[in-house]
Design a protein around this nucleic acid. Structure first.
Lengths: 221, 221
DNA sequence: GTCTATATTGTGATAGAC
DNA sequence: GTCTATCACAATATAGAC
């Protein structure tokens, strides 16, 4: 993916079970996600990967590169599926329902990802900009295409009287907001409402079921 | 509020303009909010307050205490107004409209607060728990009271056929989500959609106007 | 109360043996 | 490729003069 100066991988064969680089990356993911880039310690990552600190630098050269790798991976994990869905030819109602299910089911697998991403985006907004430029003009172009297509669909539906007029950005942001909020508010829900893991799970199930209807009624005229 | 071992304030009279402690706290707020607790540097805070690093320790003893002070202040800034509103005797429709306006207008004054809070909550979930315990049982009791009252109101409205049945937690979380998301997603909106300060402002105005209707229609049966 | 050192530890990164 | 040892500097915190 990105040029790593470090190792040439001929017939990499390790003392331990699998691929060391991967074990390091896995550990880095976990540590960065829960501590944030600034709060993470190379030592903690090394310990969690079962190797020593020097190896992290051997494979990833610096903390900053390792952090950038983890961030880029995380940022682009959910995007493709969402983009496909929103750009598809399904009706608005279908898109809403599928989006809610797709998103909640996906993020449930990594419930701390949204908190991590919001924190990073907030604390280092330039990283994303840099990443997008590095990704070339294709990325932004793709966003623009989907936005126009979705906007057209929403206009047509409004003209047909199915829904009220709404800007595609507002529509999209509304869906994201309603789906992602439980994960961002997880600590609050726990502390304030005494919600434990089980209760949180029920809360998510309920949302998954109710949200599509709530959104679609909100769109109707 | 919390016991600071440091200064006894008899007739504090400074070389500079105003109260030094306040200037430090202001600077700390700004720095912690944009860098996060882990990423903030005492040196940067000192520079931004126009004093030297030793004074920070004189007034706040340690970075951790300073961070805790800033966090507690931030966490309890918006809460009281929201609690009053939700516990009031207004109708659901009135509450929705007032909440949206109140919340967006308030957070607009400090647009980086939500990102900071989410980051801190995510990276140090224990801080909130500790704070709540320190605040005594009154805090949680107040939450419980409001939740029950709001729940009753929602049940009554549902029984009367005005709205669909909905749990008070879901109702509340929906409103928060839709109001707070623009601030959390601000970096994304900028990078992906090319939204500048002006466009973001328009985006907020549009939401402020459309959100109440969207939510209320979503609640209706 | 406020400053200039300075102590002390934490932390990313490198050298070099194996 | 992986380790141990260590460097170099960043960062919190304290001592003590004014």
């Amino acid at each position: 993916m990105n040029d790593r100066a470090g190792p040439k991988r001929p017939g990499a064969q390790n003392a331990r079970d699998g691929d060391t680089e991967l074990r390091i990356l896995d550990a880095a993911r976990r540590v960065f996600i829960r501590r944030g880039t600034a709060g993470a310690r190379m030592q903690e990552i090394a310990a969690e990967a079962g190797v020593n600190q020097a190896l992290l630098h051997y494979y990833f050269r610096s903390k900053d590169r390792l952090a950038a790798t983890v961030f880029a991976e995380a940022a682009f994990r959910v995007v493709p599926a969402i983009a496909d869905l929103l750009g598809s030819s399904a009706t608005i109602e279908e898109k809403v329902e599928r989006f809610v299910h797709l998103y909640i089911d996906a993020v449930r697998q990594s419930p701390f990802l949204p908190g991590y991403l919001v924190a990073e985006l907030h604390q280092q907004p330039k990283r994303l900009t840099a990443m997008l430029e590095a990704a070339g003009p294709g990325a932004r172009a793709a966003v623009g295409t989907i936005r126009r297509k979705l906007g057209r669909q929403l206009r047509d539906a409004a003209a047909a009287g199915t829904i009220r007029p709404i800007a595609p950005e507002q529509f999209f942001v509304n869906m994201i907001a309603l789906c992602v909020i439980p994960f961002l508010a997880r600590p609050l829900l726990g502390a304030l409402l005494g919600m434990d893991a089980r209760a949180f799970d029920d809360f998510l199930d309920q949302r998954r079921a109710e949200l599509p209807g709530f959104i679609i009624r909100g769109l109707r005229s």
